[in-house]
Amino acid sequence: MRRARSSLVALLPILWVICGGDSLASDASGSAPTELEALMQRFASSGGVRARFRESRHLSILTDPIETTGMLYFAPPDRLARHTTWPGRSSVVIDAERVLLGDETGQRVFDLHSSEVARALVGNLMIVFRGDLEALRARYSIAFDSNAESWTLDLEPRSRALRSVIERVHFAGKGGNLTEMETREPNGDRTIMELSEIEVGLSWGQPELDRIFSVDPPDTTP
C-alpha cells in the first residue's frame, strides 16, 4: 500500500493540473483568476482532459534529475490515467476506489479502502472536482496569490499522515495557463511537471475509455 500511496502522491499535482486544465486552457487568452473561489469554480467545471507531460524528479541521491514524458488523461468524475512513454513505458490509472499500476514487471491493483492516506488524497481531490473550497481549507493550509498576469497556489496538508508524504504542493500559472507545478517531499526531493498540448472538454466512447484507463497504455493518442 505504500506503493499505492506513493503513486497517488505522484499523481496529486497532475490531478490538480487536470482539474484546473479545462478552466485554465479555456481562459488562456483572458486574465488569471484573482480569487481562489473563481479558480475553484473553474476546477469544478472541468471536463475530459488530455495533456502531454514532462516531469523532472530532483532526488537528493542523484546528480541529475530523472526526466520522464508521457500523456495524462482525465475523465470526470473520478478516472485518471498517466501513461509514461519515455524513457520506459509504465502506467498509473485511478478508477474510483482502485489504483492500477503497470510496467514491464507486470500489473498491480490497490484498493483505496485499506489506506487512510490514499483515501484522503483521492477524497481531497474529489473535493477539488466539486469546487468545495470549504472542505479543501479544512484539509490544507492554502496560500493563493495572483496579479493581473500570474497566480500561485500553495497547499500544505494539515494532517500529519499526509504531511509525512507531501510537504507542499506548489502551482504557478500565467493568465489561464499553468506554467509550473512542484511537489516537495519532506526529505527535500522535488518533482516538477510541465504540461503542454492540453486539450479540454473531451468526451470519449466506452471502447476509448476502456483503452485509455487501463494499464495497457494506448500506443497512439486517441
Partner: peptide, 11 residues
Amino acid sequence: LAQPDSMLVAR
C-alpha cells in the same frame, strides 16, 4: 527511481 511509484524507493 524513474517509475511513478518510486517515492518509497527514493526515500
